[in-house]
Lab assay of single mutants.
Amino acid sequence: VCKIPGCTKRYTDPSSLRKHVKTVH
């Protein structure tokens, strides 16, 4: 789960989560 408040994205792959946080937030 993305830890950013208001963001409901969920990832099973830690690298995908990291990429999401870097690119989306």
Rank of each mutant, 00 (worst) to 15 (best):
R18F: 13
V1W: 00
T12Q: 13
K3C: 09
K3L: 08
T23N: 12
I4C: 05
H20Y: 00
K9E: 14
H25A: 03
R18T: 15
K9Q: 13
K3T: 05
C2P: 06
P5A: 09
T8Y: 07
Y11H: 10
T23P: 03
P14D: 14
V1E: 10
K19P: 04
R10Q: 13
I4Y: 13
S16N: 11
C7D: 05
D13N: 09
L17H: 07
H20Q: 05
D13V: 01
R10E: 15
K9D: 12
K19D: 14
P5K: 08
Y11M: 09
I4L: 06
C7Y: 01
S16Y: 06
I4T: 02
V1K: 03
K22M: 15
K3I: 07
V21Q: 14
P5L: 02
T12I: 08
K3A: 04
K22S: 14
S15F: 05
V24Y: 07
P14Y: 09
C2Y: 06
V21S: 04
T12D: 15
R10Y: 04
H20A: 02
L17C: 03
Y11R: 03
C2R: 00
G6Y: 02
L17R: 01
G6H: 00
T8V: 06
P5V: 09
T23K: 01
Y11E: 14
T8D: 13
S16K: 13
P5T: 10
C2I: 04
C2W: 00
P5I: 05
H20D: 10
K9T: 12
K22E: 15
L17E: 10
T8R: 05
K19M: 14
H20S: 02
T23G: 09
T23R: 05
P14A: 12
V24Q: 12
T23E: 15
V21N: 06
T12P: 13
G6Q: 01
S15W: 03
R18Q: 15
L17K: 03
G6E: 09
G6M: 04
V24S: 13
H25I: 01
T12E: 14
I4P: 00
T23H: 12
H20R: 00
S15K: 08
V1T: 06
G6V: 00
V24G: 10
R10D: 09
R10S: 15
R18G: 13
T12A: 08
R10I: 11
R18W: 09
R10W: 08
S15D: 14
H20N: 04
V21F: 03
D13E: 12
Y11I: 08
H25E: 07
H25P: 07
P5G: 11
Y11F: 13
K19E: 15
L17F: 04
K22V: 13
K9M: 13
C2S: 04
C7M: 02
R10C: 10
V24C: 12
D13Y: 02
S16Q: 13
K3E: 14
K9A: 13
K19L: 12
P14K: 08
G6I: 00
C7Q: 02
T12R: 04
S16H: 11
K9I: 06
K22N: 14
S16R: 07
I4A: 02
I4M: 10
K9N: 10
D13F: 02
T8K: 07
D13Q: 03
S15E: 15
C7G: 03
S16E: 15
H20L: 00
S16G: 07
P14M: 10
V1N: 08
R10G: 10
R10V: 14
R18K: 14
T8S: 10
R10T: 15
S15Q: 06
D13I: 00
